[in-house]
Amino acid sequence: MLRTMKLIRRFEERSAEHYGRGNIGGFLHLYIGEEAVAVGVISPLRDDDKIVTHYRDHGHALARGMDTAACMAELFGKSTGVSGGKGGSMHFFDVEKGFMGGHAIVGGQLPLAVGLAFANRYRGEDSLVVCFLGDGAVNEGEFHESMNLASLWKLPVLFLLENNGFGMGTRVERASAQPIIHRLADRHNVRSHREENGQDVFAVRQATLDAIEYIRDGNGPYFLEVMTYRFRGHSMADPIEYRQQHEVEPWLDLDPIKLLSDRLLENNLTTEDEVGAIDEDVENEVNEAIQFALDSPFPTPDELYTDIYA
């Protein structure tokens, strides 16, 4: 888990660097600070479970074991990218890994998750669908429609709310009349829980395991709210003028990667040398990914017209 979290962190730090160099364009929404959520939620999933997520999707993709180089190539707009260079940062896909997309219209991925879960149940399979959403999505109608349908039909969906406190630059308290968001689930008779320790990967993992057990027992959907923090801006274009440094600093002390490595070291589950080796290994993997992305070709003009229809 430590390695995966470090991989996500370095992948994104280097992505930001290449955004600055002009190798990556469009929107680049960084997940830095939230790594414990992706890893804590995705690590206990089975291979036949599916993931649907939002546009801040790099962390989820890497936690699911998607190819680091292909992810980087997608950011570079190359044909070797996870979506052939046609999706970019916000639209990673890997169907073989059950990664059914980053989706960039807020709330739009929720009905899709319900439909995937509907197919599971129709076919009598016991796999489930994890649907990541942000705190901004819960004020969309699609959130309530999807929660109602999933609950009404007892579908195996884990609604996984990453509450990082802001919908772009607007605080939860300024957007939601019910800022204790998981309580919205009561309205739809959906079992819910708020995990306050979202920077602690073990806490997130345990909360997820509880949710998974509930869903696989055939009880229908589960709504898990995880409290976390976005260390960077909404996207690379965000000057972050809406929050004060004194507010950010306590969160920076709760760096999920530092928390985890400190804990492993304190309990003698790892050594400084081993952590150093992981850092080096991750650095190499990201360097190779960047080199792969640089060396890969852009899609050819004829690819403009492929993949529109099956």
Binding site: G81, G84, K86, G87, F93, D307, I308, A310
Partner: peptide, 8 residues
């Protein structure tokens, strides 16, 4: 389909 590079 398009955004997934033809996977879907």
């Amino acid at each position: 389909r398009y955004m997934s590079g033809g996977q879907i």
